[in-house]
């Protein structure tokens, strides 16, 4: 009888002291795996970036990677392309996600968009490039159709293998990714907030401006940064669409790695990889900063 009564009460003190240890152990497989198979390659990229071909430490590769004109051009176009497609993808993705959420929770539209987003977020590379060439290339279906109704894209200076064309193609996987990332945050907007705001005299616009947007801001910012990183990392699509005619960081890395220029280019390639990791790190710090800001009013 006494044992029964004591059982639940006795352990807590001990459990608490061992809990954080045991709990951390439970995360070990996951974090360990990430460390080995993501951290490992990153380690070799960084160590290679600061070594010469014989393994002696040097900063020359990294210096070259940020000073040589062709790499600076690649840097610039990569940054611009990633930033612009991240913002466009974030804005349109949010509108699309909200448009879908207005419907009933189990509506077919919602299921179609949710599942298609999962597939299309991974859609890239040669097939995506080809789909856009088939649609908007010189003889693409959409190009021909538009010409038929009097809009000549190519006479207006458009080319599918330009930076604009590439951006248009990137948005194709950016929007679905945004839908995936932002839907939970949009679902977190409680209906009574909108009703309370309306009741207090807010229009639809003022509700979004003063209530919904501040609530969403950290999630929107975080998701946009992820989109930036996603575009920054994309490689196969650009290569397939432009055959390397537009200099981008990932294509520069790949051609440096393939080593058909000079032997020590390999280490410059790794240095370019290091540069990308630095940019990504800045992005991640921004992401964490946004999360921290949200903590001021969020209960988590």
């Amino acid at each position: 009888m006494t044992a029964l009564l004591e059982a639940p009460a006795a352990p807590p003190e001990r459990v608490r002291s061992t809990r954080s240890w045991a709990a951390a152990l439970g995360l070990l497989p996951f974090l360990g795996y990430m460390l080995v198979f993501l951290g490992g390659p990153l380690f070799f990229v960084i160590s290679g970036a600061f070594s010469d071909p014989d393994g002696r430490p040097t900063a020359a590769n990294v210096l070259a990677s940020i000073t040589e004109p062709q790499y600076r051009a690649a840097f610039l176009s990569s940054l611009v392309l990633s930033a612009v497609t991240a913002v466009i993808g974030a804005v349109f993705g949010t509108f699309l996600a909200q448009a879908v959420l207005i419907g009933r929770p189990d509506s077919p539209l919602r299921r179609i968009v949710a599942t298609a987003s999962g597939v299309l977020a991974y859609f890239g590379g040669v097939p995506l490039a080809f789909a856009f060439i088939a649609a908007l290339g010189q003889t693409g279906l959409a190009t021909v159709f538009l010409r038929g109704i009097g809009i000549d894209l190519y006479a207006g200076g458009f080319r599918i293998d330009s930076l604009t064309g590439l951006g248009l193609t990137y948005v194709y996987f950016q929007v679905p990714l945004m839908v995936i990332l932002i839907t939970p945050a949009l679902e977190g907007l409680l209906p009574q907030w909108r009703e309370a705001a309306e009741n207090l005299g807010a229009s639809a616009w003022t509700y979004w401006r003063h209530v919904a947007f501040p609530v969403l801001a950290p999630a929107l910012g975080g998701a946009t940064l992820v989109l930036f990183g996603n575009a920054f990392a994309a490689y196969a699509t650009a290569l397939a669409l432009t055959s390397g005619s537009i200099p981008l960081l990932p294509t520069a890395i790949a051609s440096a790695l393939s080593g058909n220029v000079l032997a020590n280019q390999q280490n410059v390639g790794l240095a370019l990889g290091f540069d990308m990791v630095v940019v990504i790190a800045v992005v991640m710090v921004g992401y964490l900063f946004l999360q921290r800001r949200a903590a001021r009013w969020s209960s988590r």
């Binding site: 709990a23 951390a24 439970g26 995360l27 996951f30 974090l31 990430m34 993501l38 490992g40 390659p41 990153l42 380690f43 070799f44 990229v45 290679g48 990714l177 992820v226 930036f228 990183g229 996603n230 920054f232 990392a233 994309a234 490689y235 960081l249 990932p250 890395i253 790949a254 790695l257 390639g269 790794l270 990889g273 990308m276 990791v277 990504i280 992005v283 991640m284 992401y287 964490l288 999360q291 988590r300």
Partner: peptide, 29 residues
């Protein structure tokens, strides 16, 4: 361990933003 939910979510973001080409470079090395 609900307190690390945020940390883990950030950790799972990493593979989206670390360029596969950079990963490949490290592995190739």
């Amino acid at each position: 361990f609900p307190s690390v939910a945020g940390l883990l979510e950030s950790a799972t973001i990493l593979p989206i933003v670390v360029p596969p080409v950079v990963m490949a470079a490290g592995i190739a090395f």
